[in-house]
Simulated assay, not measured.
Amino acid sequence: MTAKPRFFDLSDERGVLRTSIAVTLVISSLGIGFGLISGSFSIVFDGVYSLVDASMSLLSLIVVNLITAHTVSKNLSRKVRERFSMGFWHLEPMVLGLNGTLLIGVAVYALVNALSSLLEGGRDLEFGWAVVYAVITLIACAAVAIVEVRANRKIGSEFVRLDVKAWVMSAGITAALLMAFCLGYAVQDTKWQWISPYIDPAVLAFVCLLIIPLPISTVRQALADMFLVTPADLKAHIDTVARAFVEKHGLDSYRAYVARVGRSKEIELYFIVPADAPARTIGEWDALRVEIGDAVGGEGPDRWLTIVFTGDPEWAE
Results as ranks from 00 to 15, higher is better:
F7S: 04
D9H: 06
L10S: 03
S11R: 03
E13M: 01
E13W: 08
E13D: 03
L17A: 02
R18Q: 10
I21K: 10
A22W: 14
T24E: 12
I27T: 10
S29W: 06
L30P: 00
I32D: 07
I37S: 08
S40P: 01
I43H: 05
V44N: 06
F45R: 00
S50Q: 06
S50F: 09
D53V: 08
V64F: 00
N65Y: 09
N65R: 06
I67R: 07
H70V: 10
N75H: 08
K79Y: 08
F84Q: 11
G87K: 06
M94V: 12
G100I: 03
L102M: 15
L102S: 13
I104M: 15
G105Q: 02
V106G: 00
A110T: 03
V112C: 02
A114K: 03
L115K: 04
E120K: 11
L125E: 07
L125S: 13
F127N: 02
G128M: 12
V132M: 11
T137F: 04
T137E: 08
I139P: 02
A140M: 14
C141Y: 10
V144T: 14
A145C: 02
I146N: 09
V149T: 13
R150E: 04
A151Y: 05
A151K: 06
F159D: 01
R161G: 06
M169N: 13
S170F: 03
L177W: 11
L178E: 04
F181D: 00
F181W: 14
G184K: 09
Y185V: 01
V187M: 05
Q188V: 09
W194I: 11
I195L: 15
I195C: 12
I199V: 14
I211C: 08
I212M: 10
I212D: 00
L214I: 13
I216H: 09
Q221D: 11
Q221R: 12
M226P: 00
F227M: 13
V229G: 07
T230I: 04
K235G: 02
I238F: 07
R243T: 03
E247A: 11
G250T: 08
Y254K: 01
A256P: 01
A256C: 07
Y257A: 04
R260M: 10
K265F: 05
E266M: 12
I267H: 00
E268Q: 08
L269G: 04
L269T: 02
F271L: 14
I272Q: 07
A275F: 03
A277L: 05
P278R: 14
A279G: 09
A279E: 14
A279F: 05
E284H: 07
D286G: 03
V290S: 11
V290I: 13
V296T: 00
G297S: 14
W304F: 10
W304H: 10
T306I: 12
P313M: 12
E314A: 15
A316E: 08
